[in-house]
Design a protein around this nucleic acid. Structure first.
Lengths: 347, 347
DNA sequence: TGTCTTTTTCAAAACGTTTTGAAAGCTAGA
DNA sequence: TCTAGCTTTCAAAACGTTTTGAAAAAGACA
């Protein structure tokens, strides 16, 4: 491997100048810079990352912990994030070290990783409303960025979408189409995002003086089967008139809900309107649904670059910063005006 | 953070002596060593890994690439391996950097990781019979250890179990119980392990002059559903008498096969014997089946330490080494003597 | 006491980079 | 020709460890 010294030797330059030339410092002569570049290319120079890290005092590694389910399966969305984060961090010459957690104590794996004493910071995902990991890392002044938010106003670094706003946008669209009986197929309430979605949903409904039967809000793992079961239960409810619109936590849940609607002999959007939140995972695209799904869209992949950038900045000494984006409402064919008869008259 | 210099300063020793004392070199006075230890503990000394890595010329990072399925899900066994490997490598002060691959070219993600120019080596999993990753890494002299084997005799470092032997052991047990019509529910043939299992199965059967109808060998993803479907098809076969014993590629497949046997109104082991290979994943334990599963057992977790050790040794300059272990045959209640009537007489 | 080993310690170099402070070299203005 | 100011380069220090070769201290033997 070529070093700065070798390049310098070949050109009669000091390693310092070579370093400056390659790193684009302004105080180096253009002619010199060109020659340095040329020799560096010819020798296939690659900076020694370890040496860089020693002198900068950073390890160039950040950690992330994957919490797996009791059956050892992992959240699908995790891989999407992992892929994007690896790439986004690589642009900063930072590597992602992964650890797997199957335990009960959410903090322990972080403590264990810190013991290795080599990480510059952490990326935290899937926050809970009062996330103990956040407290732990803050107490120890360990840099981290949270994907999501544990509470409306915080002073640590986070990036995410306005999940209350997601529900609100969906409800507003449906209400503008005349819907009044709206159901929510939510994710598990233990997670902050589901909490926020529910909060946004309830407040949007109450703002319009619409009823929010607890039976029309479900909260569970976001699977197709779960969407199917929950939607079916609501459409066949005995005490309430069935919902004319369903807000789904994910496109996967929407797939299940659609199947339930059809199994009841009903049609989307004629009888039931469906809105879903869309993480834009490649394998289940909202446009490919028939009818194409109306969604609030916020690609998970879009979060990776900001998360990486925020964490790197934080590690370099920047002040904590919060960034909450709005999801985009995309109206397609799965939403329509509230049915004027039929469902309304159901027992 | 305390450094060697600081400890030395406090005791009037040079950093060199402190380093030797802490690293257990023999040429340091016991009394000095004790005092150094004490001060190091008091100051909470932790060696700076980056500095260590600079001087040793190794980055202390090895890579692994997770190939995910088109639907973005990952092999369950991967997390078991990941957990074990992380721990085993940590004992050598080595970190595992993970990358996710969703593409077609199996070599590209490795090339991409090498470009980052910071890895000491790779751990390769799920080999195919002629694995292009092996060729790629060998050509470039990049240290790696393969979990499994691409062929019977190789000259690169690998660790795994004798998969042909796994099938042979299962067949021998069943033949000793009088079985002659034996089926194999195998994994996908694109993988070397499934290839070997099949080879071992066929050769063991042919050694005993037993027929091996191609319809009694399936090869597909090792899921419960797949086990159920394949077993059902074989038990209901029209041209052949149904198998009296089934060899399953995993406990999950065995669960499906058992369900199929029951759905046919048959019993395990009275009517059909079942042997499975057991990776000893925590979530589906062979002893908890009823009847408890007879298995060839080789805990995946057991492979992690040897894999880590072999790779570290290789990186430190050791010669490539192959290590192939035998699985352990554990006879429980799911196997029994071949039925003397009934099944034998089926159309 | 002096010499020869053996034990124990040290100073210095090395790893490859970044950064600091100083020194050249050059240009322009007087 | 001198000075001031600007551009360009350099030598050296720094990061924290390991390792090498030498030196000092201690012990053994005559």
């Amino acid at each position: 491997m070529a070093t700065l010294k070798q390049i310098g030797l070949e050109l009669g330059l000091s390693p310092a100048t070579v370093s400056r030339a390659l790193n684009g410092f302004p105080e180096v002569n253009q002619h010199t810079r060109d020659k340095v570049r040329e020799v560096a290319d010819r020798l296939g120079y690659r900076p020694n990352r370890v040496a860089q890290r020693l002198v900068t005092g950073r390890s160039g590694m950040v950690g992330m912990i994957l919490k797996i389910r009791p059956d050892m399966s992992a959240d699908q969305t995790f891989f999407e994030m992992l892929t994007g984060l690896t790439a986004a961090l690589a642009a900063h010459d930072v590597d992602l070290v992964l650890s797997v957690d199957q335990g009960k104590d959410p903090v322990k794996p972080y403590a264990k990783m810190m013991e290795r004493d080599i990480l510059d910071g952490f990326i935290l995902n899937a926050p809970t409303p009062h996330d103990p990991r956040v407290d732990y890392l803050r107490q120890r002044n360990i840099p981290f960025v949270l994907h999501g938010q544990t509470a409306p106003d915080v002073d640590y670094t986070c990036y995410g979408i306005d999940n209350a706003g997601v529900s609100r946008a969906a409800v507003e669209l449906l209400v503008s189409l005349g819907h009044q009986r709206i159901a929510l197929l939510n994710g598990p309430l233990q997670y902050a995002f589901a909490h926020d979605r529910r909060r946004g949903f309830v407040s949007a409904m109450e703002d319009r003086k619409l009823p929010v039967p607890t039976d029309f809000i479900s909260g569970d793992n976001e699977t197709e089967a779960q969407g199917y079961a929950a939607a079916l239960a609501m459409l066949a409810h005995r005490q309430h008139l069935p919902p004319t619109a369903i807000v789904c936590g994910s496109t996967l849940v929407a797939a299940g809900a659609m199947r339930a609607v059809r199994d009841k002999g009903l049609q989307v959007p004629t009888d039931v309107s469906i809105v879903a939140h869309d993480d834009a995972l490649p394998q289940l695209r909202a446009v490919n649904f028939s009818p194409a799904l109306t969604v609030t869209r916020a690609p998970l992949r879009d979060a990776c670059q900001p998360l990486a950038d925020l964490l790197i900045a934080l590690i370099k000494g920047a002040k904590p910063r919060q960034q909450i984006e709005d999801a985009e409402l995309i109206v397609r064919e799965s939403t329509g005006p509230v049915p004027t008869s039929g469902l309304e008259l159901w027992p």
